[in-house]
């Protein structure tokens, strides 16, 4: 039996989360805008006029000379475009204009809040139908967004990820928008083929892996853009991001978490397939794509360990893997004929 009141509250929570994420996204955008060189200079001038923080400017200038020993930073841009060296943006708070810092603070708080509201929405939805809330595309999208935002928030307590905020909250809003406009499915019980504890194991891990891959893809995209800018010698707000090599390593760090999760998803899916469909592997379109995603990310890890393959090339392979994840979710669920017919559409 479904409890419609609870399902209603779940939706209210979801809409609140979207409103909160909108604020978070705007704040993160303001933060990045605050990093723009022009703004920066203006702030500095103001600071100078105030006369009390003239040291700050020197600090910014000196940053370049203290560039890290990391060999990789040698390939990035002229020195003056790299004021923070290898240290992450946060390095010293004084380097970031105070307005931008305030915006980032609000952005980070609201991202936490949005994630919590999504968690609430997921819990209420689960209670309303008295089952694990992962039965259709709408529910996947909401839980996926929840994992993505919470993983980002938790991780940003350990290192400075403000530069990534816009690229996390933006996609989350997009996905939640799709969830409520296109994939919405009323709360209800599950199809017999989904009534299994393997749903909890397999799909939850798949959604979690997808969330980590999403953050990784955002970091990889930022890396590639920054790298392209750095090569062309043009300066941009990206100069205030962590240096290219450490962006790439950040992304790699995420992929080596997500890849074993995905491997587990694949294995758990096969075990479940044997329970539900008699054979652990049926080359069902969803299985094919899950396998393809796995192979592409395996290729990414390989390419990263192969001498003579650049980090850029490897990064493109990782993005190809993420493209497959998107296809697997948005296209295969809806348009391909297979046994995984649970999109709810």
């Amino acid at each position: 039996m479904t409890n419609e009141t609870l399902a209603g509250y779940a939706n209210v929570s979801l809409y609140s989360a979207m409103a909160v994420f909108t604020i978070a996204m705007l704040c993160h955008a303001v933060y990045l805008a605050g990093l723009l060189p022009a703004r920066d200079r203006a702030t500095d001038r103001a600071a100078e006029r105030a006369g009390d923080r003239s040291a700050e400017r020197e600090l910014v200038g000196a940053g370049a000379t203290s560039a890290s020993v990391d060999a990789a930073s040698a390939d990035v841009a002229p020195a003056d475009a790299e004021p923070t060296g290898a240290a992450p943006v946060a390095g010293s708070a004084a380097e970031v204009p105070s307005r931008a810092r305030a915006a980032a603070g609000i952005g980070s708080t609201t991202t936490w809040l949005g994630g919590m509201l999504l968690l609430l929405s997921v819990v209420l939805r689960g209670l309303s139908v008295d089952r694990w809330p992962l039965g259709n595309m709408f529910e996947f999208a909401v839980m996926g967004s929840m994992f993505t935002s919470l993983a980002y928030s938790i991780w940003s307590t350990r290192r400075d990820l403000r530069w990534l905020g816009l690229f996390i909250t933006g996609p989350i809003l997009l996905v939640l928008g799709m969830a409520v406009r296109v994939w919405y499915t009323e709360a209800a019980e599950l199809l017999p083929s989904l009534q299994s504890y393997w749903l909890v194991i397999h799909v939850t891990v798949a959604v979690l892996a997808t969330a980590v891959f999403t953050i990784g893809a955002a970091a990889t995209a930022v890396y590639l853009v920054k790298d392209a800018f750095a090569r062309s010698g043009r300066s941009s707000v990206l100069d205030r991001f962590p240096d290219a090599a450490s962006l790439e390593r950040t992304a790699y760090g995420l992929y080596i978490v997500a890849f074993p999760l995905w491997t587990f998803t694949l294995i758990a899916g096969a075990i479940w397939a044997r329970q539900a469909w008699a054979s652990y592997w049926n080359w069902d379109p969803k299985e094919v794509w899950t396998f393809v995603i796995w192979v592409v990310y395996a290729a990414f890890l390989h390419s990263r360990a192969t001498s003579g393959i650049s980090r850029q090339t490897a990064s493109y392979i990782a993005l190809a893997g993420y493209a497959c994840i998107i296809v697997n979710f948005a296209v295969v669920n809806v348009f391909f004929v297979g046994q995984h017919s649970y999109s709810g559409l």
Binding site: W283, F291, V292, V295, V296, A299, I309, I317, F336
Partner: peptide, 26 residues
Amino acid sequence: MRTALFLLLLLAIGALPGSIWPQRSI
């Protein structure tokens, strides 16, 4: 390693048509 990488990517691409066109065995 390069060949392994190439074959891995080829495997990914080669598996795709089976999800797009209907398969006789299925």
